[in-house]
Amino acid sequence: MQQVHNGIAILIPMENRQDRHILSLKDVNTFYGKAQILFDMSLAMSRGEVAVLLGRNGVGKSTTFKSIIGLVVPKSGSIYFKGEEITGLPPYKVCSMGLGYVPEDRRIFTGLTVMENLEVGRRLPREGFEPWTSERLFELFPNLRGLGKHLGGQISGGEQQMLTIARTLMGNPEMIILDEPSEGLAPVIVDQLANTIRNLKENKVAVLLAEQNLNFARRICDRVFIIDHGRVCHESTMAGLTGDVCEMYLAV
């Protein structure tokens, strides 16, 4: 009896969560071999937000993303997307539910042309949303226009970064997670990227970033999760982020 009660007690907030939260992690513990990287990582992201995982190098941001998308399987804990549990599902299933992933090392298919890279990412349109086409994406990423026939390996780093995001968008995701998109990009390109992400928000795509670059995150994000040692150690709105927190957890 007790257990049933407990079960219900857990279930009800979950239902609520389904309404408000597009993505949530609860007590996720992830290991590489014997090394534990994530320690009871919990976070919840509301619909319509642009949020960021902010933290120094090596604190586990990428591992969090890999756990979400299914490239590594957490040892314990749960991950929910749109209210459904996705913990341990293979990447292609998570992806087909509408979650797009842009890895930090970009991983363009260098032997494929820009158009072919986009084709790889293409998935069926999502009900109620206008599907992304290469034409629409070229409007969003003007730099890519005209590069359609170029090999992925022959375009610049900034163009590659645009291409990875465009490629993921071709899957018509409801939400995308972007791992350090601004890293290694020239300031002009970073500005464009910021515009693009704002644009995505207008297109009703939820965005979760991982960043070390506070200035970039500050320009586009509504909510911030500060990560240290594989857990969320501070959560607030971007506006509510105070200098002492930054000083404590970020290399500023």
């Binding site: 490239l71 990447p91 292609y92 992806c95 890895p103 490629r167 993921t168 899957g171």
Partner: peptide
């Protein structure tokens, strides 16, 4: 792996 992460 990247292909899988793109939903294939």
């Amino acid at each position: 792996d990247m292909l899988a992460a793109l939903g294939v």
